[in-house]
């Protein structure tokens, strides 16, 4: 077998060499398949978040503009705080430009649900906003409750709310950084994701001290461990951190 001399363009090879090649090929393939199984079995990071891709639903409620566009939907009992759905647009864009002209109005719109934990977002179907009542006739906004949570210093990771809530899995950490940068740059609201010792996640929508968008200011800090101090406010079921993004600290 040592003297087997292989010539590829001949029709066959010697039986000894053929058997060796068969064994070698099978061993390599088996090793690759075992590696694949090991890699797949040890993968993590797939949350139970859902993006109802291809399923469009209708919603009716009051639009809230600002850096975090939302739809407030009255609860069936007409009592208590309305449900809030953060709105985003198709692709890596925020819904601000579509929502802003109708902020405060009662509308019907259609979109695709994205949800994770107790947070829900709607990817707005382009051009689907139908104004039912102009701003002055809407009542839901007046029932919004604002709760001051005081000044907090938080440590966590800045993620784009759309991917993290379900469009991408995983929608955080370094492999997702470039995507999160693109989404936040395109207007998707940035979120400071904070986990407690038990791994429970809290979501803080980042806005400036005066409530403006900070998307462009946080881009260099996305998907990294950071610390930020600001005024936490809970409104319509969402939590906001009013802070100066220049004070973001890398950990």
């Amino acid at each position: 077998m040592k003297d087997d001399f292989y010539i590829g363009y001949l029709p066959t090879t010697t039986p000894g060499l053929g058997a060796f090649l068969k064994r070698t090929g099978l061993a390599y393939l088996a090793a690759c398949l075992v590696v694949a199984l090991g890699l797949v079995a040890s993968m993590g990071g797939f949350s139970s978040a859902v993006f109802e891709y291809g399923v469009e639903r209708d919603f009716e409620g009051t639009l809230v503009g600002g850096p975090v566009p939302m739809l407030l939907v009255d609860r069936p009992s007409s009592e208590g705080e309305p449900s809030s759905y953060v709105l985003t647009a198709f692709g890596k864009f925020g819904a601000g430009p579509e929502v802003e002209p109708h902020a405060g109005a009662r509308v019907r719109l259609s979109g695709t649900l994205i949800y994770r934990d107790d947070r829900t977002m709607v990817e707005l179907s382009a051009g689907s906003i139908e104004v039912l009542a102009p701003v002055a006739l809407s009542r839901t906004v007046s029932t919004e409750r604002t709760e001051e949570l005081g000044e907090l210093t938080l440590e966590g990771e800045i993620v784009d709310s759309k991917c993290y809530l379900g469009v991408m899995k995983p929608g955080n950490l370094k492999p997702h950084r470039a995507c999160a940068v693109r989404c936040i740059s395109g207007g998707v609201p940035p979120v400071l994701l904070v986990r407690d010792d038990a791994g429970h996640a809290s979501y803080f929508f980042l806005v400036s001290e005066d409530g403006g968008a900070v998307n462009s200011e946080v881009l260099d800090h996305v998907a990294e461990p950071v610390r930020l101090t600001g005024r936490a406010v809970r409104r319509s079921g969402q939590t906001f951190l009013y802070a100066n993004p220049a004070e973001l600290q890398r950990l």
């Binding site: 692709g91 864009f93 995507c179 693109r182 260099d220």
Partner: peptide
């Protein structure tokens, strides 16, 4: 496509400027 397309920048440009660390 997954990480750079459908955004506010050309995906090929985004590939090189998305992370500047």
């Amino acid at each position: 496509i997954q990480f750079h397309a459908l955004g506010d920048q050309n995906p090929l440009v985004s590939l090189f400027v998305g992370n500047t660390r």
